[in-house]
Design a protein around this nucleic acid. Structure first.
Lengths: 94, 94
DNA sequence: TAAACAAGTTTATGATATAAACCAAATTTT
DNA sequence: AAAATTTGGTTTATATCATAAACTTGTTTA
C-alpha cells in the first residue's frame, strides 16, 4: 500500500537541495543557500548528510582567495530521488 | 521557489493516515493500523496530533463491549492536504 | 589596524518519530 | 472459575532531527 519514504530525502531542506541539484547538475554553497532560503548552518549540516550518504559529491576549492564549496548530485542520489518521488505517489495520488 | 511544507503533514505516518481518510471518509483505529502497518503506540500519538490540529475528528464509542475509535477528516484537514500536495510539487516536478 | 564581511562549521536546543512498556477490559483456554 | 491471551488502545522513554545561534578563519574596506 504505502511505500516507505527515504528519511534522508524526507526533509524539507535536503529535498530542496537535491531537487536543485537534479536540474542544475552543479551548484555552490552560496547558490544553494540563496535558492533554498536556509541558514548557512542548517545548509552545512544537511549537505554533510547528503554527502555522507553518497547522494551528492562535495568539492572544496578556492575561487581566488575565497573558499568555494561545490555540490554535484551522484547517480546514487538521482536514483534515491526517483525512488522517493515514486514512493511519495502512493500517498498523494488522487 | 520552494513552498514550505506543513510539518504536521510532512510525516510519513500522519501523511498516510490523512491519505487514507481522504479517500475513505471514515475509518477506525484498527483499520488505520492495518493499512499503515504502524504500531498502535505510534498511531495513537499521530492521531492525537492530527486531532489537536483540527485536521481530523476523533470519536470514541463502543462496539458492543469493545472500545472503538473512529476518525474522520475535517474540511481543514482536506484543505491542508491539498495545500501540502500543491507545495510538494515545487520540489518534485520534473 | 580595526571594523565589517564572506563562507562556512560547530554546538546547543527543542521538536519529532518511533517503539517499548503499560493498562483495562474482554475473550479464550485449561 | 482461574489463568492466560487477546484486543484496543495510552503513556513513557529514547534516539534522531531540524534548526538557529554562536563561532572560526580568512578577506576586504575604512
Amino acid at each position: 500500500m504505502f511505500k516507505s519514504l527515504d528519511p534522508l530525502l524526507h526533509s524539507q531542506l535536503r529535498l530542496a537541495v537535491i531537487s536543485l541539484l537534479i536540474s542544475v547538475e552543479e551548484a555552490d554553497f552560496v547558490y544553494l543557500r540563496e535558492q533554498t532560503g536556509a541558514t548557512a548552518g542548517n545548509l552545512s549540516v544537511q549537505i554533510d548528510k547528503l554527502n555522507e550518504a553518497g547522494y551528492i559529491q562535495v568539492t572544496k576549492t578556492f575561487q581566488g582567495k575565497m573558499p568555494r564549496t561545490v555540490c554535484k548530485i551522484t547517480d546514487k542520489g538521482i536514483n534515491a530521488f526517483d525512488e522517493y518521488v515514486k514512493n511519495l505517489q502512493t500517498y498523494i495520488k488522487k
